[in-house]
Amino acid sequence: MSLSYLESLQQALHHVMKQDPNVIVLGEDIIDPYGGAFKVTKGLSTHYPQRVLATPISESAIVGISTGLAVRGFKPVAEIMFGDFMALVADQLLNSACKFALMYQDKVSVPLVVRTPMGGGRGYGPTHSQCLEKMFLGIPGLKVVCPSVFHDPGALLTHSILQEAGPVLFVEYKNLYGLTLQRPDTIRMKTSGSGFPVVIADNSDAVPDIVILSYGGLSEAVLQVMQRMTEEEIHIRLILPSLLSTTMDASIITKYINSCTKVLVTDNNTPGFGWVSETVNWLYQHSDIHNAKVHTLTAQDTVVPAAQVLEDAVLVTPQKLEQSIIEIIS
């Protein structure tokens, strides 16, 4: 039996609460029977009524209070119902939670995890569909973690809650919640690194025609395209980091990218000034890659519309990915 992305996260929360009595979960509408807007906290309050706290609509205070709990010895997990609401949390994360250990010279630690769902594809419209993780990249002291459908989301969440001494922004993708984590036999997968591993997935044993770098929600679309292109004998290698706030180890380039001259870096953010541009910069920092042509594909520089046909026009879709891949390799 294979779990879904959602079930993996649900089970991880049950596991950490059982394992560590200092874990406290806070957020809006998270208690049973509702169990959270996306049901990630389903069942938790029934088992741990004292440690699952339903809050008012006060995102800034949810993270502020969590920061206080973390400084004083607890391991709070704050749920922010939609990633778009991270704008309301930005000051608390940036100016307090992420500053304390650094400016107080490690006299305090803030083992805080803020979980939030990002991304579109569900028709929620401009203020409930964004990928705001890009706003939180480049903040000293903050780790931004995002599991793809190729990762073990529960293992990443468990590691973030129990092993990390500093704040983690844990980004979940709404379009992945319902997907099973079982991968088709045609996809070969390995991982590199522990804790927050990088996934390397191939649709054949041949030398890849193209290497795609992406993360999070777009992994679903790339997986669809990889399966389709297996039949056409187009060899695709997909590289998916789970830690977005630090560029990958250089060995990823020497081991998995070097042999290919065609590279596509893609995410579903607005173009520029984000993970894609930083990853392109990282690639060009390594002399080995200079023979390769690096392409990018992102969402449009506008809001995410509610209507499906309009949303599809703005976001990266499997069709657009496939078209890009064909253009790059032909």
Binding site: G68, L69, V71, D91, Q92, N95, S96
Partner: peptide
């Protein structure tokens, strides 16, 4: 503790107080 952001420390202090209450 002190910090230079007006008001931000008040929810943090509430969290600290809750931590002590829970303990």
């Amino acid at each position: 503790y002190t910090n230079g952001i007006q008001g931000a420390g008040v929810p943090i202090t509430v969290g600290m107080a809750l931590a002590e209450k829970l303990k």
